[in-house]
């Protein structure tokens, strides 16, 4: 995922927790690159729906695009 809006380690924690609450696991968020990777069970949540999680909503500081699904 490409993640926009992160400026500090607190942001990394917030984005990681947001992804976790959305059902993702094995989460890795890079502040330097503005990216995140995670594993999801697609019977629970479709990968493309990760960018619609509350942590990336209009009221949040962060936005995300799911760029690659493997």
């Amino acid at each position: 995922m490409r993640v926009f809006g992160m400026t500090c380690d607190d942001c990394v924690r917030t984005v990681s927790e947001g992804l976790k609450e959305g059902g993702a696991s094995e989460i890795f968020v890079s502040l330097k690159n503005g990216t995140a990777s995670a594993v999801v069970d697609d019977s629970m949540i479709k990968p493309d729906d990760l960018s619609r999680l509350p942590v990336f909503s209009e009221k949040s500081h962060y936005r995300a695009q799911v760029r690659k699904v493997e």
Partner: peptide, 9 residues
């Protein structure tokens, strides 16, 4: 796009 992404796009 710049505003939404906090100037990071």
């Amino acid at each position: 796009a710049s505003e939404i992404t906090a100037g990071q796009a």
